[in-house]
């Protein structure tokens, strides 16, 4: 049985990378990973990525924070019978400020948790089959094929304007 070869196409432009992705989707080769120096809507569309779930983490964090803020303000005021300016101890009008601030705080924390869990960070090991040019200005498209088909995959990347790197 033929061994899988990992081949990376390195592209200087977003459109070239998108064209290579489309070419790979129509081929029998397996697309493994994309590296992009910028957030790219075109690549997201080409890859048909599912909608990110990070927003839900943010929303849940915000809702939790809203009630937590009110709860903190109410419990603290009631615990110490804080009377400010002759107002009731449980004064909802000013507690909106605490509720609002906590909404923002916990929405951000929720967003951070969502980001870390959804992107599976932190990653303790280095990536396999990685080219350092992907940390610069290049778009990297990593795909694999059987050893006897590497010429076809190689030419797909070259036809789309890429530089090719074959991993051992």
């Amino acid at each position: 049985m033929a061994i899988d070869k990992y081949i990376m196409g390195l592209f200087k432009s977003e459109d070239q990378a998108v064209a290579a992705v489309h070419g790979l989707k129509e081929s029998k080769w397996t697309l493994h990973r994309i590296h992009s120096p910028i957030p790219s809507h075109k690549l997201s569309e080409a890859l048909k990525l599912k909608t990110s779930k990070v927003g839900w983490f943010t929303l849940c964090g915000g809702i939790f924070g809203f009630f937590a803020g009110f709860a903190l303000a109410i419990l603290t005021a009631e615990r110490w019978d804080l009377i400010v300016s002759g107002k009731p101890v449980r004064a909802l009008v000013p507690f909106v400020i605490v509720g609002f601030e906590f909404t923002v705080l916990f929405a951000i924390l929720g967003n951070l948790v969502g980001f870390l869990t959804q992107t599976r960070l932190p990653r303790m090991q280095n990536l396999e089959h990685y080219d350092e040019r992907c940390s610069g200005e290049h778009f990297g498209v990593l795909a694999s094929c059987q050893e006897d088909q590497q010429e076809g995959l190689h030419s797909l990347f070259v036809e789309n304007g890429g530089i090719v790197r074959v991993f051992d």
Binding site: V84, S85, G86, K87, V93, V96
Partner: peptide, 12 residues
């Protein structure tokens, strides 16, 4: 709207 309300509410 709120920042006007809260100042008036506290000032009384």
């Amino acid at each position: 709207f709120y920042v006007q309300l809260v100042v008036i509410w506290y000032g009384n």
